[in-house]
Simulated scan of single mutants.
Amino acid sequence: MRKPLILVALLSALTATAQAATLPEGPALRAAIEKADAEFFALFFEGCDPARVATMLTPDFEMYHDKGGEVARAAAPFVAEYKKGCEEKKKPDAWRSRRELVPGTMTLHPIAGVGVIEQGDHVFYERKGDGPEKLVGKARFTQLWRLEADGWKLSRVFSYDHEAVK
């Protein structure tokens, strides 16, 4: 009697997993991740929309930075800190940053039923107030994007190999 119940539970779990996330493939996957990456980082560095940033993160979002250590262990406190930074950016002489993906460095590694690991290089620009923008740094990154019912969510971020650019 137990064997049929175990088999039914196993088949149900496999069916639910298969239905949870049907990943796009090839160019469609690349286009989806390029779009999600560009939107998230433009919002984070140049925009100021905490509510939208929150919708792009999994609740258990984690971020690790080789210079800053453990940046986040959950989305809510991360978004709260981002919101404070948004207020600072409103000052006329505030420092403003921009992140740019280095063309040709993005690689994608799909994980069936989950999402995709994105790796690449990025560079960072800064300017004070309305002053001139200058290239100030470069780094590498690895991130996990989860495909959920309502779209792509950033779940894990590793930002490392940071170097200043002179």
Rank of each mutant, 00 (worst) to 15 (best):
L5R: 15
A80N: 15
K153E: 11
E87A: 15
A75L: 10
E163R: 12
H65Y: 08
T22P: 05
A75Y: 02
E88K: 14
T55Y: 05
E88A: 15
G85F: 09
P103D: 02
E62S: 09
F141I: 07
L57D: 01
R99M: 13
I33E: 06
K153S: 01
A13P: 00
K166Y: 04
A74G: 06
S159A: 08
K83N: 05
L29K: 04
E133K: 14
L101F: 11
A38G: 09
L29G: 08
L108E: 01
H65M: 11
R156S: 02
K35S: 12
E62Q: 14
P27T: 15
V165K: 10
H65D: 14
R2S: 09
S155N: 05
R96M: 07
E46P: 00
G129Q: 07
F44I: 02
A75M: 10
Q143G: 00
P103V: 04
F45W: 12
F61E: 07
L14R: 03
A80K: 13
G113Y: 11
R140G: 01
L101N: 08
A21M: 09
R2M: 14
D161W: 15
V71Q: 12
Y160V: 04
M63F: 08
P77M: 12
F41W: 15
R52H: 05
Y64L: 15
D49Q: 15
G113L: 11
A32T: 03
V136Y: 00
L10D: 04
A16Q: 08
L108N: 01
V53W: 00
P103C: 01
G47P: 02
A72Y: 05
D49R: 13
E39P: 00
G129C: 01
A32G: 00
G115W: 04
K3G: 08
A21R: 10
A13M: 11
D150G: 10
E148P: 00
I111A: 14
E87Q: 10
G115D: 07
E88C: 05
L10A: 14
W145Q: 01
A32Y: 02
R140C: 10
T15I: 15
R156D: 06
V53I: 07
A38H: 11
T105H: 08
A164D: 01
E46R: 11
P77E: 06
V114S: 02
K128F: 12
E39D: 11
R73N: 09
K83D: 12
D130C: 01
H65R: 10
L144N: 00
A36Q: 08
G68I: 03
H109S: 10
G47E: 13
K134G: 07
V157W: 02
S97R: 08
P24E: 12
A94C: 07
F78S: 07
V136S: 05
V136L: 06
Q19A: 09
Y64C: 12
W95H: 06
E62N: 06
L10C: 09
S155I: 02
L135D: 04
T15S: 09
M63A: 14
M1E: 13
